[in-house]
Design a protein around this nucleic acid. Structure first.
Lengths: 210, 210
DNA sequence: GTTAGCATGTAAGGAGTTACATGATTTT
DNA sequence: AAAATCATGTAACTCCTTACATGCTAAC
């Protein structure tokens, strides 16, 4: 589950929570949603959908009834109960391997589908990963300081600064989350939360780093 | 030259300007220099060195004389005149395909080896590429605004902000460069500059975005 | 008419990481 | 003694992008 494709699978499952979709539409939404610089080619997406069908996380409904007047038949995919459960499980289990740029991005994009303890855990994990990276870069740059000219140093400085800023951002989000839910805009994003939190099993994780 | 390996080749040539080095050392320096999140595995580096030897950009000196008492013989690589010329040429020719994150990073890291007009051209190219990206993301997010919850929007906001900040950074650098050379710290980095700036050919590109 | 967009897929090929193979030396 | 670091390489494997194959409709 540390492979890149896992992020795509998770993103698909996340998107299909809202409504069934066909591949073409899914791709557009994914590109818009996560700023994924990558192209997300069909050569990646369609095989991925087939895998998800094979694992039973989604099902394909041949869209024969309303072919939008003449358009090629679309294959509409819909989330199964198993898929929904799998998605929730992956979000909750987020471990050290999932704090990379991409893995974190997908998880954050679908934060509304999880509960607050999981959100805090993911945010904290990401933050500690970034702080680790800061340490490494700082020691690495100090070892090679003599041979670096001012341009090289400027590049390193800028890199460090942007990571530091993400740490600050995360800290802010964690604080807000702890203060009782995030309110980025005045919109209620809590309609999907709460139905999957019946099994009180991971409630202890809230008081882990405090 | 749009492949990723080209960035590595350029980085190697850039580093070997300072002094001859063997692969192991080269790898450490590269990792420290450019914060390349990637691991830069031996499986990438050593084949790359062989390619550079084959193309005549570097030569291998078997390090038989001073094997540091017992250590395995190191293969020390040294830049050839052709390699130096090739490096300069690639830096000067930097075109639209070279404004990506990685390509730009390598070029910036070795800015001290180029002349000011080239530096400005690369900085401006990078900036326009980022501005392009900003446009795309902005229109994309506006199209899908209704279905995005507050977390998704927060992610997009943060992404946009960091790109905007890089644009500001670039603008600052361009201004400084135009004002007569960069002085990030009070160090003279201009010892390598000046010998390759004979051909006044691209001086017109300076007044492109003004 | 011709280009662009909708829609799904496959095959080939490139790029790079992981893991393996080998072996000496210095540090713990 | 064990582990880490120095040092170079190769082979297998994964993953993804590009390009091709197909075909219909709407807009210019």
């Amino acid at each position: 589950m540390a492979r890149r494709g896992a992020a795509l699978e998770l993103a698909i499952l996340g998107l299909l929570h809202d409504s069934p979709m066909h591949g073409y539409e899914l791709r557009k939404q994914l590109i818009a949603l996560l700023g994924w610089g990558r192209v997300l080619s069909y050569g990646t997406l369609y095989p991925c959908l087939k895998v998800l069908v094979k694992t039973g996380h989604i099902v394909a409904d041949e869209d024969v009834q309303v072919p939008v007047r003449g358009r090629r038949n679309r294959i509409v995919y819909r989330l199964t109960a198993e898929g929904k459960e799998f998605f929730a499980q992956v979000m909750e289990e987020s471990g050290p391997t999932t704090w990379d740029d991409e893995s974190f991005g997908v998880r954050f994009a679908f934060f509304a589908r999880t509960d607050s303890p999981t959100r805090v855990r993911i945010l904290e994990g990401r933050r500690s990963r970034l702080q680790e990276r800061l340490e490494n870069v700082r020691t690495a740059t100090q070892r090679g300081r003599e041979r670096a000219d001012s341009y090289t140093r400027e590049l390193q400085r800028h890199g460090l600064e942007s990571v530091e800023r993400e740490v600050e951002w995360l800290t802010e989000l964690i604080d807000r989350e702890r203060a009782g839910g995030y309110t980025g805009a005045d919109e209620a994003a809590g309609d999907q939360v709460g139905d999957a939190a019946g099994d009180a099993d991971d409630s202890g994780s809230t008081s882990r780093s405090a």
